[in-house]
């Protein structure tokens, strides 16, 4: 974990990353534990993970490199940026980005 002084954990291929982290007594953001709430998102800097389809991450968030530690299982060695500090690209104000769906909102006055 890059932003935790490169603390490292042995994670089994069939083990959720968060379980290995918590087993060693470390705390990271956690909520639903089923991939539905995004609280546990972390940025995958290097490596590959396996995680179920249909988790809470949308396309934009996945392509920005985010994974969910409660459901992600490592396929290779991984380097991660964790915690809320890694969430800079996770959240955007949807009214500030173009190219997507525009809801029918009336007014448009200054």
């Amino acid at each position: 974990m890059k932003n935790r002084e490169y603390l490292s954990f042995d994670v089994g291929e069939d083990e959720a990353i968060i379980d290995a982290v918590e087993a060693k007594g470390h705390l990271l953001p956690i909520g639903c534990r089923y991939g539905g709430c995004i609280t546990c998102a972390a940025k995958l800097l290097e490596g590959k993970v396996r995680q179920p389809n249909g988790t809470a991450l949308n396309k934009r968030q996945s392509s920005a490199g985010y994974i969910l530690l409660c459901v992600a299982r490592p396929k290779t060695d991984c380097v991660l940026e964790v915690g809320v500090e890694s969430h800079d690209k996770l959240y955007v104000n949807p009214f500030s980005v173009s190219g997507g769906y525009v809801p029918p909102l009336k007014g448009n006055k200054k």
Partner: peptide, 8 residues
């Protein structure tokens, strides 16, 4: 839960 996305 993950946030508000207009696409949704």
């Amino acid at each position: 839960m993950p946030g508000f996305d207009l696409e949704d």
